[in-house]
């Protein structure tokens, strides 16, 4: 029983962290160009990251 006291918060925290990570990724435009991201790792001079959310239309 006492094990629940920290296991449940731990489960919720981990789940919440991954949710937050997904939200952040979406907000920072990482899903905007799925094909391009794969190609860009091959460039020597990495350009700036994708424009921030709200600043550019798709």
């Amino acid at each position: 029983m006492s094990v629940l006291v920290y296991l449940i918060p731990a489960a919720l925290l981990l789940g919440g962290a991954s949710l937050a990570a997904f939200m952040w990724a979406m907000k920072s435009g990482q899903y905007e160009d799925l094909d391009g991201a794969g190609e860009r790792i091959l460039f020597d001079d990495a350009g700036p990251l994708a424009p921030k959310h709200g600043e550019t239309a798709r």
Binding site: E32, D33, L34, D35, G36, E39, G47, P48, A50, P51, T56, A57, R58
Partner: peptide
């Protein structure tokens, strides 16, 4: 100032 290509949608901003 800047140009960014989007390969998925084939657009340039």
């Amino acid at each position: 100032i800047s140009a960014r290509v989007n390969l998925s949608t084939r657009r340039i901003s």
